[in-house]
């Protein structure tokens, strides 16, 4: 999936300006990091791509299509093409690992055999194939995060967004998670990871976008 931001701004009703004049272009199959202090607008940028919020100015093009032209009814179908991983993983605690990962497939009405196959494939990729019957609370933080990743990729999305996926993990687990993203990128998925862990980002040697108070201050380099 190809993403293009053209002078995108987001101003909340409270008057707070979360993003202003943000422009960048993410090629199909590219992997990039989004860094910046907390409050710099990383999450807002992610939410605009998920259509959780709408920009107040500028254009966001996804595969050449202006997101503003999508109706409310089209939003779910847009989201099915995007996988998201959040810091607070947002797993359903009363559902098994299997069910959590299966959710995007259930929602889009895939058939049951297909679901089982895809879920196991996704769990296999994140190394949790033996934990499908567990409930999230029985897993460690790193494992929970990997369940979240499995859920994000089970639908074979074309874009993978991760908002602080390593936020509360130790460096070793963080590196493992980042390697997972890299693997998905290698098979053609466009990946954008928001992180404030600059050291880790620098080690990954990918394009780095840096936000500061809602403005894009750096695009390129390795941080």
């Amino acid at each position: 999936m190809e993403i293009e931001f053209q002078r995108v701004g987001k101003k909340y009703e409270s008057g707070q300006e979360a993003l202003s004049q943000v422009s960048f272009h993410l090629q199909q199959g590219e992997m990039a990091f989004l860094t910046g202090h907390s409050g710099a607008g990383k999450s807002t940028l992610m939410k605009l791509m998920m259509m959780i919020e709408r920009q107040t100015s500028g254009q966001i093009l996804v595969d050449g299509v202006d997101l503003r032209t999508l109706s409310r009814r089209a939003i779910p179908h847009h989201r099915r093409r995007v996988g998201v991983v959040f810091q607070n993983h947002q797993l359903l605690l009363d559902r098994s690992v299997f069910h959590n990962v299966a959710l995007p497939l259930l929602v889009s009405g895939a058939d049951p055999q297909q679901i089982a196959k895809r879920v196991r494939a996704a769990l296999d990729k994140v190394g949790l194939l033996d934990k499908e019957k567990y409930y999230p609370m029985a897993l460690s933080g790193g494992e929970q995060q990997r369940v979240g990743i499995a859920r994000a990729v089970v639908n074979k999305p074309q874009l993978l967004l991760a908002d602080e996926p390593t936020g509360n993990l130790d460096p070793k687990l963080s590196a493992e998670i980042m390697n997972l993203f890299q693997e998905f990128n290698r098979v053609g998925v466009t990946v954008l990871v928001a992180s404030h862990d600059l050291a880790l980002v620098a080690r990954m040697r990918h394009r780095v976008l840096t936000l500061n108070q809602g403005r894009m201050v750096n695009d390129g380099g390795f941080g």
Partner: peptide, 15 residues
């Protein structure tokens, strides 16, 4: 164009 772009992708899951 919008609708088209949603359909005309490589994925094969239902929309």
């Amino acid at each position: 164009a919008t609708r088209e772009s949603i359909k005309a992708t490589k994925h094969n899951w239902p929309t």
